[in-house]
Design a protein around this nucleic acid. Structure first.
Length: 338
DNA sequence: GGCCCTCTTTAGGGCCTT
């Protein structure tokens, strides 16, 4: 059995469940603290960031985490009261817990995960129990077949301890020709302590499972995920003999942004990049763009604004979500028809 | 590559992701 050290534990803490968000939308975005009470501890674990190598401010992420439950989306970047300890990305993953993962255990987890998730949730609108996790990947390029993931970050919007996860990823023999984009170099990822994707996948599976509640479901949110992130994840999983669990539901904020623009009329700027959306929503982008956690931090704010304006309840999120197999099926269908 | 828009659908250009 291989032992890996990573930046979270599976300690379960009291959390504000998102299944109540539908009510929050009806009552107003700003009533979340009252609803969540002391359970909504939107705090982050002290995982790593790097002030020198394309980094972001952990302080700012803390601000978001604390404020997102109680203030207007456009006020989320104004507070500066939260404090976090910075540590160097020279250590790719932090060490809050020992993590032992067997491939056989992952197989058992995947057996437990059922198909036809969306119909089940939609049928049971009153009790839809959804965990929303915003994520982002950095890669060696745009080619889903030839390029590799070199960094991944996730943030569970319900908060609580260990609500963030981030790590560099060792891409093996693949070079990194686009360090000028994200600042991630071969030196940073090709050294002891940085997991390969093969080592990381079981950890990811268990981390996300640890964020799900019993009988609940997980929605993974990323920008342009339909065309980019999900395909990369899918390829990496298949490359090492894994499948993306069928109950991982994906949301593409690019599609939400286009929908939002339609809802605003013709005078709204048409740019839909993450940075353009931050500008549109007056969200201060903290840190360096194209580092995974910095992008996740920004996208979390953007997503909250979009979901608020578009009145997206958890059930609605499930309805508009897609699975990795949806994309595979569409690809096969397209291939057969051509 | 997928999606959207338009000077469109038997197409082409632009945006978005690193």
């Amino acid at each position: 059995m291989r032992t890996l050290t990573t930046c979270f534990s599976i300690l379960q803490v009291p959390r504000c469940r998102l299944h109540t968000l539908a009510n929050f939308w009806q009552e107003g975005f700003y009533s979340l603290p009252r609803k969540c009470g002391n359970l909504s501890r939107f705090r982050l674990l002290s995982s790593k960031s790097d002030a020198n190598k394309g980094s972001y401010s952990r302080r700012s992420i803390g601000n978001y985490s604390r404020l997102s439950i109680g203030k207007k989306p456009d006020e989320l970047t104004k507070d500066s009261s939260a404090t976090y300890t910075h540590e160097s990305w020279d250590e790719a993953v932090s060490t809050s817990a020992q993590w032992n993962v067997k491939r056989a255990e992952i197989s058992e987890i995947q057996k437990l995960q059922s198909c036809d998730i969306q119909p089940k949730i939609v049928e049971n609108k009153e009790t839809a129990n959804v965990t929303v996790i915003v994520f982002d990947i950095e890669t060696t390029g745009f080619s889903r077949d030839n390029d590799r993931i070199i960094e991944i970050a996730l943030q569970d919007l319900q908060g609580g301890e260990n609500s963030t996860f981030q790590t560099l990823v060792n891409p093996g023999a693949r070079s990194i020709p686009n360090s000028h984009v994200h600042g991630i170099t071969s030196h940073m990822v090709k050294r002891p302590g940085v997991p390969s994707m093969e080592e990381l996948i079981p950890i990811l599976l268990q981390y996300i499972r640890s964020r799900q509640t019993k009988g609940g479901y997980v929605v993974l949110v990323a920008h342009n995920s339909r065309s980019f992130d999900v395909h990369f994840l899918n390829n990496e999983f298949k490359r090492y003999g894994f499948d993306i669990p069928p109950d991982w539901l994906f949301i593409d904020t690019l599609a939400l942004a286009r929908e939002w623009i339609k809802s605003q009329g013709s005078e709204t700027p048409t740019k839909t990049s993450l940075q353009a959306l931050c500008t549109t929503f007056k969200i201060k982008f903290v840190g360096t763009a194209h580092r995974a956690m910095a992008d996740v931090n920004a996208l979390s704010l953007v997503f909250q604004r979009l979901s608020f304006d578009l009145k997206l309840s958890p059930v609605k999120l499930v309805e508009i979500s897609f699975t990795a197999s949806d994309l595979s099926d569409a690809k096969k269908k397209k291939k057969n028809s051509s």
